[in-house]
Amino acid sequence: MTAGMASEGRTSSLVQGLRSLALTAVSVPAYPALAGLLVASAFLQPKALTLPFLLIVLRQAVPLGLVAIGQSLTMIGRSIDLSVGGVIALVNVLLAHRMFATGAPWMSFVMPLALGAAVGAVNALFIARLRASAVIITLGMSIVLVGLSYVVSGGAPGGQVNAAVRWIATGRLGLFPIAAFVWAGVALLVGLTLARLVIGRELQALGANYFAARLGGLPVGKTLLVAHVASGAIAGAAGIVLTGYIGTGTLNLGNELVLASLAAVVLGGTSFGGGRGGVLGIVAGALVITYLANLLRGMGVAQPFQLVIQGLIVAGAAGLAAHRSR
C-alpha cells in the first residue's frame, strides 16, 4: 500500500517534470528552436556545426543579443524601445567622426553609453511622465536620431573608427571573441538585476499591474526610467560593437536590429508585461536568429527570403506566448 503510493508519487513527479519541461519549451520557444536548428544543420549543412563557424555566429550575435536584452527590460515594464536603431545609427557616425576617431579611446566608449542613456531618459520622460504612446514616442525618437546622424555625417559618412573600438569588436581572448565577453557580462548583470535586486522586482511588478505598483508604494516612474536608460545605454554598447565590426561610418546602421530584437525577446519567452524565459532565453533567442540567418545564407537563400522567415518566427513565437497566457 505504502510502496504503491510512493511509486505513484514518483511517477506523478516524473509526469510533472515532463510537463514542466514541455511548459518551458512552449514558454521559451528559443530553446527547442535552437535545438532544432542544430539538428537540422547536421543534415543540411554539417559545416555549420564546426567550432569556427559557431564562434563566428557567437560574435555576430553580440549586437543583436545586447539590444534584445535592453529591449526586454522595456517590454517587461509594458513599454517598448523602437529607438535602439536610431541610437546605433547616431553612435556609428559619431564614432567615425574625427573627434572620436582620433580622440582618446575612452571617449569612444563613454560617448555611446552616455548618448544611449540620455536617449532612454528622454524616452522615459515622455512615456512615464507624459504617458504618451511608447511605440510612437520611441519611433519618433528613432526618426530624430537617424535625422541627426544624417546631419552629423552630412549624408556622406565614412572615415575610420578608433582602433580600440575595432579591438573590442573583433579581438579575441584565446578562442573566444572579446565581444562575447561583453555580452556575457551584460547578460549576467541584467539577469542578476532582474532576479535578485529590488529594482528587478519593481520592474516586474510594474509590468504586471501599473496601478497596483503605484498604490503599493513602488517608484513606478523611476523604474521605467531605469529600464529605458538601460535599454538606451545597452543599445549604445551594441553600437560600439557593430561599428567595430565594419570599422567605418555608414548610413542607417542598426536599422534591422529593431525588429530582430523584438523577435529575440519574444523567442526568449518574454512579452509585454513579463514572461518566463529570463535573460538566458533572450540570449538563446538572439543565437537562434543569428544562426538561422547564417545557415540560410550558407545555403544560398536570398536575403528577402530571410526576412519572410524572420517575420514568421516573430508571429509564431508571439502566437505561442499569447496562447500560453490564456
Binding site: 513599454s79 512615464a128 504617458r131 504618451a132 510612437i136 519618433g140 535625422g147 509585454f272
Partner: peptide, 20 residues
Amino acid sequence: IKGALLIAAVSAHRRAAPGL
C-alpha cells in the same frame, strides 16, 4: 523635425497608465 512633430503629437494624449 518630422520625428519631433510625431513625438509632440502623441504627447498630447495622456493615458491613465504609461504603456504601448
